[in-house]
Amino acid sequence: MLRFIVRRILETIPVLLIVATLTFFMVRLAPGNPFDTERAVTPEVRKNLEAFYGRDKPLPQQYFTFMKNLVTRGDFGPSTRYPNRTVNELIGESFPVSLELGLYSIAIALFFGLIAGVIAALRPNTLSDYVPMSLAMIGICLPTFVIGPLLILIFALMLGWFNASGWFSPIDRVLPALTMGGIYAAYIARLSRGGMLEVLNQDFIRTARAKGASEKRVIFKHALRGGLLPVISFLGPAMAGIVTGSFVVETIFQIPGLGRYFVTAAFNRDDGMIMGTVIFYATLIITLNLIVDVVQVWLNPKLKFE
């Protein structure tokens, strides 16, 4: 297993280099640059701005300078949008916020999603299937930009239990976590029901039941292992998305998280920030997918690390 993990970590290096290279050129090819504003900048100022950020050099040279700083010092350079902060500082400030919210959301999503999914799968096409699944479908039909404001209207403005926005006191975590967790709970509920149904129909479960194993044992010892596979595969990329924050949720609730940088950096063509967020996200995705692969083997002893 150790060899497997070491090999996967080594594989990460070329992947990140490819991601960095592709992103660098994609950003440079896209029209517009960080210095375009509604009020046109004079040509002299633009020249000086470009000189300061090294953008007056030929593209290949910029690329190599960038890669050198990245590889040797892990440095993405300054943010063109926020000149008194480096990209690393901006990510360092905002990621803990998104991570905190993300962990609450995942906890909510897993708790409600798994229970609803398993209940539904155990009694398919009965009331205890229809009720949680209809709830899940409602969760899926209401996007965050509807459910978020709706929660605020009800619980903050009508009932006055919460602040309408902000990230100051612990209770400010509740509504955004519910908004984000709710949607993912719905996904997990649907996926775990589907996965469980597949497994519960399989021969080894029938065998186990026929042998007189208790229902609890059948579920926990046999069914869950296979039944949760799709949820686990889904969780890899989903968790990367959740812990890096959601632009919509962070905007609706005014949360100083990382999620909004993914969007604003692209809109501002803040190339340092784009590179920073992309590489950060890539590292997370790779790590989480690695964990997923390990968990899959752990759940299914027939699989081997290869």
Binding site: I152, S165, G166, Q254, P256
Partner: peptide
């Protein structure tokens, strides 16, 4: 000075006395 990008969020914050 609060950084609030969305006008809807801002209006709701105003309405709830923030």
């Amino acid at each position: 000075f609060y950084a609030i990008e969305s006008d809807d969020t801002e209006e709701r914050a105003f309405r709830s006395g923030q």
